[in-house]
Amino acid sequence: MLNVFRHIGVIATISMLENARKQIFHVLMLFALTLLACAVLLGRFGHDVQIQTIKDMCSAVIQISASLIAITLSVTGIPQEIEQKTAYPVLAKPLDRWEFVVGKYLGTMGAVAIGIVILAATFCVVLLGYAHTVDPGLLLVLPYILLEAALLAAVGLLLSTLASPPLAWFLGAFIYCLGSAKFGIYAYLTGGHEANLVSKAVGTAIYHLLPNLECFNFKEALVHHLPVPAGYLVQTALYAVLYTAAVLTVASYSFSRKEL
């Protein structure tokens, strides 16, 4: 058992360092920081609700950026290892393929966490500059942004074992968009008298299969200082962990059947 942790630890560490050095990671971070700057500039026009607008826009930027980084890094991780042949000496060691998948996943999440910390630190500096205080509500928002990214990284990893990286990225981004508006799409496809059998089936499939990413959105609570029930927080965290575990299990199975 100790060996399993060691294997995963080594793969995750190398993978995290590799991801943090990737050019695409730097580009996405630069893009996110530029968006944060734009959000702050736009927020200044908010006059009476300047702080609220900045909080709302900056947390949205962090959430979208973390999701994009998670999808981008996860869909390229394993295919790049195979293409560059760095996976072969590792997989020739006495370890199961699922250990490799989990190691790569944790490495990706390590890099995503680094990204979130940098963006969050920038956000805090902005808040200190405008409000002279850091909102404790951030401690609620940031972990759930990380959980949402974790779920999306698992989905990206699964897609990367099934499709080419560009296709996997588009599918990942599509799932992110659908998952973020899941209830609206479900209501649109299944509600009303005009909904036919096909649209109802599609709506139901989207509802049950795709991840519910709306539940990770605590921006409103941050901006308006709304209370969030502890039960809901636990339930959401549990949902993220279980969904991620299930997707990683399928990804491991898919990768274990892959011919290298």
Binding site: I14, L17, R21, K85, T86, Y88, P89, A92, K93, P94
Partner: peptide, 18 residues
């Protein structure tokens, strides 16, 4: 079965920053 096996691939590649 790979516990006691060492493997040298034809063109070895490792992460170059290590």
């Amino acid at each position: 079965s790979r516990e006691q096996v060492g493997y040298l691939p034809e063109q070895p590649y490792f992460p170059r920053f290590l």
